[in-house]
Each structure stands twice: as C-alpha cells, then as structure tokens.
Computed example of a mutant assay.
Amino acid sequence: MTPAEVLDLARGRGVMIATAESCTGGLIVGRLTDIPGSSEIVDRGYITYSNAAKIEMLGVQPSTLDAHGAVSEEVAAEMAQGALSRSQAGIVVAVTGIAGPGGSEHKPEGRVCFGIADGWGVRTETFEFGALGRDKVRAATVERALVLLASALSAD
C-alpha cells in the first residue's frame, strides 16, 4: 500500500489522518507528507518517544505504562485514542515497539504494537518482525501502518 493510496482512501471517506509514533520517530507521517497535497488529509503527527511524552501529549495513563510497559497493545490503544481526541483527524494509527538493537525475553527486538482509532473504536495488534535490525524494523513498521490505515479506511 502506498502513501498516496492511503491518502486517496482518506480523501474518499472525508477524514483526516493523524499518527502517534514512538519507535518510528515520525517516519509514518513523513511518508504521508512526502505526497503533494497531503496537507488536505494529514492533520498532524505526534512523536512520543519517551513515556513522559506519551503521558503529556496523548494522555496515556501512567498506570497503563506501569502495568504493561510502553511496548504493549494497551499503550498503543491509549496512544491512538489520545491522538484521535486531541486532533481533527477521523482516523489515527499509533505504533510503539522495539526497533533494536536489544529487547528482552518477554519483549524481543522487532515486536511492534499497533493501534487504529476511528469512529468505530480502537483496534490493536502486535506484529513480530524479528531481529531484522533497527532500520528494517522501522521500515516494516511504516509499511504495516499504511496497510492498517488502508484496511480501516476501506472497511464498511
């Protein structure tokens, strides 16, 4: 799925897009805004790399971070919902993960949690990209986020 195709789907639905990004550091919104005319569709991108930024900018609950950690579907859901409620967007994609290097037995390198928030609610998923290396995990995360946006924008 290309960024231009995602923008066309959003335009067709009459909604703006926002992103809430941790491990990608703004790469998703960057890919979307590479497209001429994207200012009609892209509302904003939140780069919330630290836990403090997630709390302050998106309203992620400290108790959620304490209970589940930053790399969790629970945090991805709160990031997505927070960005939706704090923007003019009709759909948000949120990502939080471990791009690497590193990770742990319980949260390995390449694990990324996604959240999609729109008028139908919030949906989450976790994707295990594996220890591909930082650049490849981040690139794969951007591609998966575009697919998730397109899927949500295509749903009836």
Rank of each mutant, 00 (worst) to 15 (best):
A4H: 13
E5L: 04
L7N: 03
D8T: 12
D8E: 15
D8R: 14
D8A: 15
A10R: 05
A10K: 09
R11D: 10
R11V: 06
G12Q: 05
G14N: 12
V15D: 07
M16T: 12
M16H: 10
I17Q: 11
I17W: 04
A18N: 13
A18R: 07
T19C: 13
A20P: 02
A20T: 05
E21I: 06
S22C: 06
S22D: 05
C23G: 00
G25W: 01
G25H: 01
L27Y: 04
L27N: 02
I28G: 03
V29Y: 01
G30C: 01
L32P: 01
L32C: 02
L32F: 04
D34Y: 01
I35N: 05
S38Y: 11
I41N: 06
V42W: 08
R44V: 10
R44C: 13
R44N: 11
G45E: 12
I47L: 10
T48D: 02
T48C: 14
S50M: 09
N51P: 04
K54E: 08
I55A: 12
I55L: 12
I55S: 11
M57K: 15
G59A: 13
G59H: 13
G59T: 13
V60S: 05
P62Q: 09
P62V: 11
L65G: 03
L65I: 15
L65D: 03
D66Y: 09
H68L: 00
G69K: 04
G69V: 06
V71C: 07
V71Y: 04
V71K: 03
V71W: 02
S72L: 03
E73F: 03
A76C: 07
A77Q: 05
E78N: 08
M79R: 08
A80N: 08
Q81T: 10
G82T: 10
A83D: 12
L84S: 14
S85H: 15
R86S: 15
R86D: 13
S87T: 14
G90M: 06
G90H: 08
G90E: 08
I91V: 15
V93F: 00
V95M: 02
T96K: 03
T96A: 00
G97P: 04
A99D: 01
G100K: 07
G103M: 05
S104W: 09
H106P: 00
P108H: 02
R111M: 15
F114M: 02
F114K: 05
G115Q: 02
G115L: 07
G115F: 02
G115N: 07
R123Q: 14
T124P: 07
E125F: 02
T126Y: 04
T126R: 15
F127N: 10
G130L: 11
G130V: 08
G130A: 03
A131C: 08
G133Y: 11
R134D: 06
K136A: 15
V137R: 03
V137W: 01
A139D: 10
A140Y: 05
A140D: 02
V142H: 00
E143Y: 00
R144V: 02
R144E: 03
L146T: 02
V147Y: 06
L148I: 00
S151N: 12
A152M: 06
S154M: 00
A155G: 02
D156V: 00
